[in-house]
């Protein structure tokens, strides 16, 4: 794996079968980008209902949106589209790849690993609470759905409003059993806070830790200050074990070697790499609250 560079563009992969809500999520992110310049890569523009007043310019493969966001269609060559994106000035802050409905997100993550200038933020897979169990037992689709889920860091269990509590519990338990590595978040209309869906790699320093501890509806944000050097790997592993509802974490620790390390957690995936210059120890955690008791 490439060591993420401070200038690397983070990539979040959005997976899930047709109808799970990928396009809805993309639109939700664009509407709530809040100054973040997003580059969204979609397989095809299709029915992407971008509000006309947001569109500044449009050609065959690229739509420029107000606020500096762009949307590109990559057709059958995602790697080439990412390579073109890496040449773009100014660089987008964050890249979101919407995978096709039968794509295996782990393979896309594999491609990100060898491309200079990008590093993987995480894999978010959407599932339709109403149809998941049916799709997962479909002759043609079951193994594809399972591979999509087992590649994910965060699973958005979407459209929870469409089913009753007992059915929802059944779906939630089924996912937990088949994708124990992922954190499951229940959503309606794919409405997930931006800070939960995407995590930026740069412009994050514990000097401003208090500003990172923002209020996120439905989530709990806390800041852990750390005084002593720690073993970064075991510290991160313990964080995951101790916080069963942890969705994301990001911060810096002084490793026992004396080096500052960045710790990053998405779902239950831990990523450790060398920290940028001048950061201080401390870590911000975002956890789910009000988890329905199951």
């Amino acid at each position: 794996m490439n060591t993420p560079d401070k200038t690397d563009q983070p990539i979040t992969i959005i997976g899930g079968y047709l109808g799970a809500g990928k396009t809805t999520l993309v639109n939700h992110l664009l509407r709530n980008a809040n100054g973040l310049k997003l580059a969204i890569l979609v397989n095809e523009f299709g029915e992407l209902p971008i509000d006309a007043d947001l569109i500044e310019a449009e050609d065959d493969n690229l739509i420029s949106l107000a606020g500096g966001c762009i949307c590109c269609s990559y057709g059958n060559d995602m790697v080439a589209a990412l390579m073109e994106l890496s040449q773009m000035h100014p660089k987008p802050d964050h890249v979101v790849v919407e995978a096709s409905g039968v794509a295996i997100p782990g393979s896309i993550a594999g491609s990100v690993s060898f491309l200079d200038g990008f590093s993987l933020d995480g894999i978010l897979t959407l599932v339709d609470a109403y149809t998941l169990l049916e799709k997962a037992s479909d002759t043609y689709l079951s193994d594809t759905i399972l591979r999509q889920l087992s590649d994910s860091n965060i699973i958005l269990l979407n459209k929870v409003d469409l089913i009753g509590a007992p059915a929802l519990e059944e779906v939630q338990n089924w996912i937990a059993e088949h994708a124990p590595q992922a954190q499951i978040i229940q959503t309606q209309n794919a409405k997930v806070p931006l800070a939960v869906a995407l995590q930026r790699h740069d412009s994050f320093s514990t000097e401003h830790a208090s500003s990172q501890v923002q209020h996120i509806e439905g989530f709990e944000t806390e800041f852990l200050s750390i005084e002593k050097p720690v073993d970064a790997y075991s510290y991160g592993t313990k964080l995951i074990a101790k916080h069963p509802h942890l969705v994301r974490a990001k911060g810096f620790v002084r490793d026992v070697s004396g080096m500052m390390k960045t710790i990053q957690i998405v779902g239950k995936r831990l990523d450790i790499h060398d920290a940028p210059q001048g950061v201080k120890q401390g870590i911000v955690l975002i956890s789910q609250k009000n988890i329905p008791s199951m």
Partner: peptide, 9 residues
């Protein structure tokens, strides 16, 4: 192997 088209598509 892999699907290159979704059955619904």
């Amino acid at each position: 192997g892999l699907w290159y088209v979704a059955p619904d598509q």
